[in-house]
Amino acid sequence: MKIKLTVWRQRNRNAQGAFKDYEVEASPDMSFLEMFDVLNESLISKGEEPVAFDHDCREGICGACSMVINGSPHGPRQGTTTCQLHMRSFQDGDHIVVEPWRARAFPIIKDLVVDRSSFDRIQQAGGYITVNTGAPQDANAIPIGKAEADEAFDYAACIGCGACVAACPNASAMLFTASKVAHLSLLPQGAPERRDRVRRMVTAMDGEGFGGCTNHGECSAACPKEIGQDAITLLNREFMRAGVSAK
C-alpha cells in the first residue's frame, strides 16, 4: 500500500519547525512505527536526515511512543498505542499527517520527540507511599477488597505516555495526575499521606504549565489504557477533602 505522509520536522527545541511530505510503500501487517523505520532507512540511504521519534518496547506498555496521527494521539484505534497500531487500519493511498504532542509543558526536542520530564516531576511531588525498604508488615496483613484493588489497578495502568495531554483541548495533565492520586487514594496504604499528596501533585501539575481540566473527556478517549474520567473525579474529591482539613 502507498501512503502519503506529512510529518512535522524540527531540528531542535528552539528551531523553527515545518511539515514535510514523504511517500512510503507499506504493508498492511506493518506496525505504524515499522512504516517509519522503512521511511527512515530509505532516507538514510538517500543521505537525508531521518525522522526522530520516541519508541522503545513496541508492545504498548513503556509509554515512549507518541505521535498525533491525523489529529488523534496514537491514531484512530481505541485503546492502542502508536507502536501497536498497524497499517491495516489505513487504506492504500491514504494521506496521514503526523505531529508531535503539543503542549507548553512538553517542549519539542527534535521532530516528533518531546520532553515529558514534567510528568516525572509531578510524580516526584508525592506520587508515592513513604515506606522504607524492609519496613513493611506481611502483605496479607492489610486486606483490600477486590473491587477497590481492581479499581486501583485501573488507574495504576497509566503508562505515562502523555496522550491525555496531547488530546486535551486545554493541554491539561489532569488525567495523568489523577490516575496516580486515584490509585493511591483507593488503597489503605495510601491514606496517611493523602492530603499532602493531592495538594503537592496539583501544585506541581499547575506549575509545569499544563492547562486545567474542563471535563471534555478527550483524555480518556485518547488514553491507550482507557483510563476513565472517574480518576479526575477522585482527584477532585481528594483535593476538597484536603481543602476542608485543618491540617
Binding site: P136, Q137, A139, I144, A149, D150, Q189
Partner: peptide, 13 residues
Amino acid sequence: IDQCVAQGVPFAR
C-alpha cells in the same frame, strides 16, 4: 511481596 504491597502495587486479590 511485602515491600511491593506496602508501596501500593495492586496485586490480584
